[in-house]
Write a protein that binds this DNA or RNA. Sequence first.
DNA 1: ATTAATTTGAACTCACGAGTTCACCAACGG
DNA 2: CCGTTGGTGAACTCGTGAGTTCAAATTAAT
Lengths: 243, 243
Amino acid sequence: MNKGVGILEPRSSIRSVVGYDARMTAVTAPSGRKVPRGRIDKRQAILDAAFTVFARRGYGQSCVQEIANEAGVAKPTVYNHLTDKETLFRHAIEAAADAVMAENLAVVERLREPGDDLRAALEDMAYRMLQVCCGERSRALRRLTYAQAADFPDLIETVQGRTAIRLGEALADRLARLSLSGRLRPGDPAQAAEQLLALLTGPMEMRSRLGTRKVSTAETRTVARAAVDTFLRAYEAAAPGRP
Amino acid sequence: MNKGVGILEPRSSIRSVVGYDARMTAVTAPSGRKVPRGRIDKRQAILDAAFTVFARRGYGQSCVQEIANEAGVAKPTVYNHLTDKETLFRHAIEAAADAVMAENLAVVERLREPGDDLRAALEDMAYRMLQVCCGERSRALRRLTYAQAADFPDLIETVQGRTAIRLGEALADRLARLSLSGRLRPGDPAQAAEQLLALLTGPMEMRSRLGTRKVSTAETRTVARAAVDTFLRAYEAAAPGRP
DNA sequence: ATTAATTTGAACTCACGAGTTCACCAACGG
DNA sequence: CCGTTGGTGAACTCGTGAGTTCAAATTAAT
């Protein structure tokens, strides 16, 4: 059936000149890899590029060619590493989810040493968390998973499990300790965490118009302060040190 | 250039038999229309069908043919009423937004006569609102706008303006009255409304996994109760009637 | 240097969907 | 009864993008 397949008369090798620039940068950038496998890890470059492009255009409107260009790689190479467009999407999303999660967890961990001004510590954490959640990667991740919820319902489960749920658990851990040490009133720490997160992300999502509008630093601070204020009114231990 | 255009040799008119059934049902279904205009309002049927299909498949994956089928109408008829696929989308979304909003406003209005048990009134409103927000239409609307935020940024503005923002304002109105009558502590009613809504939708969105999992009635009630509880702890007037 | 694994560009297949055209037709208004 | 109006199915154009193929080029390891 393939009669006109091999119509590739030997072309001049002009292409190689520019085409390999990109690869070279990919080589030098990630410093010294120990992996002795054939070439350098194009795979990572492809995944990064994939997320970038998906974030820019959405899943349906992204074409593999553009991802290849973004990665400085030929299209067949993409298919060589990741079989499908779908596979590409899943791996890119999961990688992004892990990255976002790491940032968030780092922020929550700061509550381990709250200092003696609990309100200040919470406000600090709140503000930093809002910064992460409004970052480009985080917003794109949310948008993409939301958008493809219908097509890849299992993916949403994975992403939620690696981000929102783990974040809630981590925060619940910190709040539980604070209850135990008498700085928050006793109660369900999971619920407290859930509600504090809601008080942060809800108003933020509202003001950023689902991420389409930039929110000023001052406004972000206001949201963080308001959230913590309401949270403490509801959850602070009954009688502080001095009345 | 069109040489093979008119290759429609007069076929037998078999098609008309089944093809017109759909139109007929469309005629008889909506009972007695008073509109004397040419035919029946196919337009509305098309918009309804469009939202149904978009909700089912997402924007990119929906094809106009399927919308036409869903509406019981021919494809050219669709293009006759709505010029574009994009136009189709916008009108369908806006119609859905208005419908969802009407439901939500009706719920908030119930706070006009709160009765003497404020907590019960708030819980009732909260529960009803969660039911609306978890309804198929509401979830689909959220998913679609979120997904297409990049392609139609102005649409998101419109939808938010007609739903979330108006809802916040309406709720703020009610809360302001409650402050004025001394049942809530004085303060910014807009912020109170924003936070109450966040306390409701945030945890709900979490538990429903962005709408991919069904949330039981009991769990919904729990979320509503928890939200109102926290809200009242933070916003109830300092000293109630009897200590 | 030779070899084996990869990468590359370009051209190709294939499927699908937006939007259009056209000949025909059912109902309505006059 | 007849023309107008809006609707209809089917076939068409046209663009786009997923995934594949292949010869040639490039590189890592031996």
